[in-house]
């Protein structure tokens, strides 16, 4: 179609209501920048704008402006300032680095605390061992002191016993008897049976009975020292005996007698 035949259709084309082949024809003319059709359509657009502007005036509701501005605010992504942008860009890596650092610190501290706990336990055990050793030493020192006091006391009496009493590796040694207690120093004591200890007995003249006088264990070389620090009636003791008993000793003898030392012929 030529431009002449399309002339009356420009307005309906602009209105969007043109039917038939004219619509495609005008579009094609415009596509190839046809000057006559472009001018015609442009004039039709002016008419369309003027028709739109002569609609009977009606006031828009007062709230419409606020609605639109609110919708605009909601539809607009918030613009960040330069520093805000930097902050949000760095937020994740910085947070991740901080979290990782914190994790490492916590892990390191955990290990350090674990190590310190282990060290503390070792030290506590060492201190307990030291205390125990100290108690043993103190106890032994007290025993030696008591033994020395008893051995050097004027009223103490000495009873010797030894290989002469029984053959073959029988313990030998001395017993110092004193009204305030007794001391036994011996050697060649065999180790007591497993799970047993030695107990000293005072055999009474008056009652014919045996009175427990404490337990002791010989050392690895067979040496033994036992101190009984309580008052005893020396004159009523007929003999001393040693038997093996359960740990801690018993009130009535149960084990085998290892040796018997008659208290006769006391010296000093």
């Amino acid at each position: 179609m030529n431009c002449e035949s399309l002339r009356d259709s420009y307005e309906l084309f602009v209105f969007g209501t043109l039917e038939g082949p004219e619509r495609e024809e005008i579009a094609a003319h415009l596509q190839r920048a046809c000057p006559e059709c472009s001018a015609g359509v442009n004039r039709a657009r002016v008419l369309a704008t003027n028709l739109g502007s002569i609609a009977p005036p009606v006031d828009a509701p007062g709230h419409l402006r606020a609605h639109i501005m609110r919708a605009v605010v909601q539809a607009t992504p918030r613009m960040h300032s330069f520093w805000e942008s930097i902050f949000w860009r760095m937020a994740f890596p910085v947070s991740a680095a901080a979290a990782l650092t914190l994790l490492l610190v916590v892990f390191g501290l955990g290990r350090e605390i674990g190590s310190l706990n282990l060290e503390l336990k070792t030290l506590q055990k060492s201190a307990a061992d030291s205390r125990k050793r100290e108690q043993v030493l103190v106890s032994r020192a007290n025993a030696y002191r008591a033994a020395l006091a008893l051995m050097s006391a004027r009223e103490s009496r000495e009873v010797r016993f030894g290989p002469g009493l029984k053959p073959n590796k029988q313990p030998d040694g001395r017993v110092y008897l004193n009204p305030k207690g007794l001391v036994m120093i011996a050697s060649n004591f065999p180790a007591p049976p497993k799970g047993r200890t030695y107990e000293l007995w005072l055999l009474r003249k008056s009652t014919k009975g045996a009175e427990p006088a404490g337990v002791f264990d010989p050392d690895a070389s067979g040496g033994a020292m036992h101190v009984l620090a309580r008052n005893i009636n020396v004159n009523d003791i007929a003999a001393l005996a040693v038997s093996d008993e359960p740990p801690g000793g018993v009130q009535e003898r149960t084990g085998a007698i290892v040796m018997v030392v008659p208290v006769t012929g006391m010296t000093r």
């Binding site: 472009s38 442009n42 004039r43 002016v46 003027n50 028709l51 502007s53 002569i54």
Partner: peptide, 17 residues
């Protein structure tokens, strides 16, 4: 594809239309 802006919009043209 439109050439130039319309010139004949405004009060006078609207009045005539």
């Amino acid at each position: 594809w439109l050439a130039t802006a319309p010139a004949a919009t405004g009060i006078e043209a609207a009045e005539r239309v």
